[in-house]
Design a protein around this nucleic acid. Structure first.
Lengths: 324, 324
DNA sequence: TAAACAAATAGATAATGCCGATTACTAAAA
DNA sequence: TTTTAGTAATCGGCATTATCTATTTGTTTA
């Protein structure tokens, strides 16, 4: 979504008019470069070509040559050669402070680049599907922020399919999802295991267990296509040779909490992440009904483009997830 | 004097501590140069090495090479190569606006240098001895300012010797003096002719003319050593085989107006530029006493170091003097 | 799978940077 | 004046770098 897209595309997309052929046909083709400026500054400070050459550990003829080049590219004299000594011209006097400034700016840029590559700070946008985004990431974000206070942590919750495709389109750098997608561009790294459990309101069902076959007799609530929960469930059904179409689907809902709410209101049963219903199970509002001889394990993955370089705050976050 | 010295020496003299061996032992010895940055900017804008190469009229491998160099010198990746496309890394995103800024600054410097070499503006300090500084330059300055309003005109009045030596020491770029000095470093260009006249108060003398011989009978006021007026006068005496020591010197004074005042008060006679006493001669306060068969002509010169490059406002002033 | 496209690599050549030795010039000293 | 010392410019040559074309490698699309 545009929220995150701007992160990468803002200036990248701007064509910026003007300043076209400014490097085309200059007198000698030579352009004022950084090295020239460094030498100029040294000559100006030392008031001597020879002393500048000692200062910079290069030969005096090289200094002469570079100053000449610089003078040619600027089309002016920078120093009057007076025999025993030199004096800067008006142009030299103008150039000197600017050159110092420019070299300073260059150093600053170098520092900023280094910092951008090592400083754990800035926006950290993690895409996540419902379960990790709601029940896992907030905790992780808290402890991460404590360690790296300069990071602005943002959690973007969409279903697993949406998150994955955003990463494919470079709208997002990494995410935590509950379903793998076949793509050789993406890395999926297993993070933690979850279990889907069949839950129902005690008013709807009070059986202790069900067999797979019995499933088709139960009114059923399901998630939308693209949901990792749904995909895990369907994979499970396939594995146990149960045709999903024979389920008695009473509704398709767009979020875990919507499904949970509907289950609480006895509209049907559903399979939901244990982690998302743990509270309700503990309090007895919902009932877990084990399926005979089977568990629906599912894995959450960290997903990212395998070719993209992650900024340091993202790398730190990935480490944080694996370690703590 | 320090007033003008600062013009050339201010930053020139400052050694500026710190930032010593910062260019010494970097990984590949390569330094981020302007050309690299231009190529980087083009790649970033075009989102493609190939399109950047077309844009800049160099080959694609050259672009690859330069980006690689830049990446090495910054010790980071700037673009992730994704196969068909590229995306800037966080470092690339940081570098881009800075690089644009830096290239802009460079252009600005070029413009400023050009301007410094052609723009008739800024301080214009003209050294002058008493006569030209008092009776000629103010008029010239007025008409010059009218033509070039951006010039700050300053007249520094010292005697001819002082002005000339300041120019020799680079404390001044040009001056107008009434006496030549033998030096192969200086250019003296004749500007205008003046005449020294023998003047006295009517109370002191009422002769119509005097002979050279009669001079020793007259109480005489003279200028200090270094004065162009005095030197011209002594040259004259030498030419007519008159020994200056035989003059009846009653006082040596430090300025033309001091001498003039003293003459008015009948302390003695003196030789003064006609231009400086024209008013008094016209009104009859002072009397011009021609010396038989002789005129004391003297020349004013524009003087400057022959090796120094003059800034544009100085060149414009020199032209102005010759023409108008 | 083949075709098209983009960047990386390789090998060759031209341009440039850099050096040491020398020259030319100036200023100071003998 | 001549000599000496100091400083920048020039020269010839070597080393490095920039750039090119041709090719390879890898990715995406048909």
């Amino acid at each position: 979504m545009p929220i995150t897209k701007t992160l990468f595309m803002e200036e990248f997309a701007a064509p910026r008019a003007g300043k076209k052929l400014n490097c085309s046909i200059s007198r000698k083709g030579k352009i004022m470069d950084v090295h020239h400026l460094k030498i100029f500054v040294s000559v100006y400070k030392n008031k001597s070509f020879t002393r500048a050459s000692e200062d910079m550990h290069i030969s005096q003829p090289t200094i002469s040559e570079h100053i000449k080049n610089l003078e040619n590219s600027l089309d002016c004299r920078l120093f009057d050669r007076l025999g025993r000594s030199i004096m800067p011209t008006a142009e030299g006097d103008v150039l000197y402070p600017r050159a110092l400034q420019l070299l300073d700016d260059l150093d600053t840029i170098q520092e900023e680049i280094t910092d951008a590559g090592t400083g754990v700070k800035g926006r950290l946008i993690i895409g996540a599907s419902t379960i990790p985004g709601t029940y896992i990431l907030p905790r992780v974000a808290y402890s991460f922020k404590k360690q790296y206070p300069d990071v602005a942590f943002e959690i973007l919750i969409e279903d697993s399919g949406k998150i994955t495709s955003m990463i494919l389109q470079h709208d997002l750098l990494c995410g935590i999802v509950g379903a793998r997608m076949v793509s050789d561009k993406l890395d999926f790294e297993p993070l933690l295991e979850d279990e889907l459990v069949l839950v129902a309101s005690p008013k709807l069902l009070d059986k202790k267990t069900v067999s797979v076959e019995n499933l088709k007799t139960i009114p059923f609530l399901q998630r939308e296509t693209g949901s990792g929960t749904r995909q895990t469930f369907e994979n499970y059904l396939e594995k146990v040779h149960f045709t999903p179409e024979t389920l008695n689907i009473v509704a398709s809902l767009g979020s875990t909490s919507a499904v949970k709410q509907a289950v609480k209101e006895s509209l049907g049963a559903s399979v939901i992440s244990r982690i998302a219903v743990q509270e309700e199970l503990d309090s007895g509002v919902l009932l877990e009904i084990p399926i005979l001889n089977n568990k629906m394990k599912r894995q959450f993955y960290m997903v990212r483009q395998n070719k993209r370089t992650l900024p340091p705050q993202y790398r730190a976050f990935c480490n944080h997830l694996k370690i703590g």
